[in-house]
Amino acid sequence: MAFNVIKPGLLALLQDLGRHGHQSIGLTTGGPMDEMAFRWGNALLGNNSNCPQLEITFGMLTLEAQANTNIAITGADLGATLNDKEISPWRTYALKKGDVVAFHQPIWGLRAYLAVSGGFLCDPILGSVATVMREKVGGLTGKGDKLQRGDVLPYSACSHQPQKAVPRLAIPHYGQKEIPVILGYQYKSFSSLERANFFSSDYSVSSHSDRMGYRLEGKAIHSDLKGIISEGIAYGAIQVPKDGQPIVLLQDRQTIGGYPKIGCVSRVGGGILAQKQPGDVIQFTPITVDQAEQERHLHMARLAQWR
């Protein structure tokens, strides 16, 4: 019982919630770029929240089901079809043996998630199946490989379930321009003018962005610090290198870095950012730690209540 990979797409990766507890040896966490979309995919099917899913970037993926199952699609709208019939994200679908699911090109957003009842069956490496290509760990082969034509994605066959959909209020607005930022402890090394420039300027997503970090292009900002001793990097940290163009570090980030950091994107904000395509424009807005925690608690409480 499995999906046969007919077309592998540009970048399709097996992910769970990440490989935690190993950053001390230089191993990053990996995991879904849009955590809330991932969590809703498993919730729709009644899966454990950490069940492995496929993260599909941009699309161009085609799968053929070899046994009956149920799937959930969340995240971006990549023009998905079921047996050539258009289907929408943020809901479940029943599949029969021989059904073909395809993802084409983005209508809105960049990354979609495909969950299957019970999760994809894959052996974990260091407690996780999260695929990190740069570190050659996780995924179907355990070596960090992206999906390839001819791969077989195992799952457990199951009977069909009633269709379910995510409540409209819980679906993120991927078109929002504002990305919330928690101010970092090196924030004061940026002058008042540099801070004002950072929070009042538009930044466009660079084509050099990836799962490691989103490079931005716009008004350059500079810190009074000439350099810092390399230190641990948190999710969402906004590094400012010598050219003054911010880099938001995300799931596949390096574990240490030596550039000044003006702040840190919240988890919810990072999920919105991860759905931006090259050329999309964003603007940063400051929030407190309390506000970031309240926002996340609201999302998690809504998910738990729905479950």
Rank of each mutant, 00 (worst) to 15 (best):
Asp145Leu: 14
Phe199Cys: 01
Thr81Pro: 01
Leu27Lys: 07
Leu82Met: 04
Ile56Pro: 03
Ile256Tyr: 13
Asp224Met: 14
Asn197Gly: 01
Ser223Asp: 13
Pro162Cys: 06
Val205Phe: 07
Ser128Asp: 13
Lys143Cys: 10
Glu293Lys: 14
Ile233Tyr: 03
Gly9Pro: 02
Val248Leu: 04
Leu45Lys: 03
Val100Phe: 06
Gln53Asn: 10
Ile87Ala: 04
Ala301Gly: 05
Gln105Pro: 00
Ser159Arg: 10
Leu126Phe: 10
Ile179Met: 06
Ile25Trp: 14
Asp99Gln: 04
Asn4Arg: 08
Gln163Phe: 13
Ile262Thr: 03
Tyr235Gln: 12
Gln23Phe: 11
Val129Gln: 10
Pro89Ser: 07
Tyr113Ile: 04
Phe199His: 01
Gly21Phe: 15
Ile221Lys: 06
Gly269Cys: 06
Asp34Phe: 05
Val129His: 05
Leu63Gln: 09
Lys143Gln: 15
Pro172Tyr: 12
Ala292Ser: 15
Arg134Glu: 00
Gly244Pro: 00
Pro32Gln: 13
Thr62Ser: 15
Gln148Tyr: 14
Val5Asn: 09
Leu126Trp: 09
Leu54Gln: 02
Ile238Lys: 08
Phe103Leu: 07
Val281Pro: 02
Asp123Ile: 02
Gly236Ala: 03
Gly257Arg: 10
His173Trp: 09
Leu225Gln: 13
Gly271Phe: 11
Ser159Asp: 14
Gly119Lys: 05
Arg211Lys: 04
Arg195Asn: 00
Glu217Met: 15
Cys51Tyr: 11
Asp202Phe: 14
Gln291Ser: 08
Ala130Trp: 11
Leu27Met: 15
Ala220Gln: 14
Ser223Asn: 08
Arg267Thr: 15
Gln15Pro: 01
Gly138Arg: 02
Arg302Ala: 04
Gly18Cys: 09
His20Gln: 14
Gly263Arg: 00
Asn47Val: 02
Gly79Lys: 07
Ala80Asn: 10
Gln66Asp: 13
Lys188Val: 10
Cys158Ala: 13
Arg302Val: 00
Asp224Ser: 15
Gln275Ser: 06
Gly184Pro: 00
Pro260Asn: 04
Pro241Val: 00
Ile6Gln: 09
Leu250Gly: 00
Ala65Trp: 02
Thr141Asn: 14
Gln163His: 11
Phe198Ser: 02
Gly118Pro: 05
Phe198Lys: 02
Arg91Cys: 08
Ile6Lys: 06
Val248Trp: 04
Gly138Pro: 01
Ala304Asp: 12
Gln277Trp: 06
Arg211Met: 00
Phe190Gln: 03
Leu216Cys: 07
Leu250Met: 11
Leu121Gly: 02
Cys264Lys: 04
Asn50Lys: 02
Gly244Asp: 04
Gly271Ser: 09
Asp84Val: 01
Gly213Ala: 09
Arg134Ile: 00
Gly175Ser: 14
Lys97Val: 08
Thr255Arg: 05
Gln305Leu: 09
Ile228Leu: 15
Ser266Cys: 08
Ile25Gly: 12
Leu216Val: 01
Met300Gly: 01
Ala130Thr: 05
Leu17Gln: 14
Val289Thr: 12
Ala12Lys: 07
Arg253Gly: 03
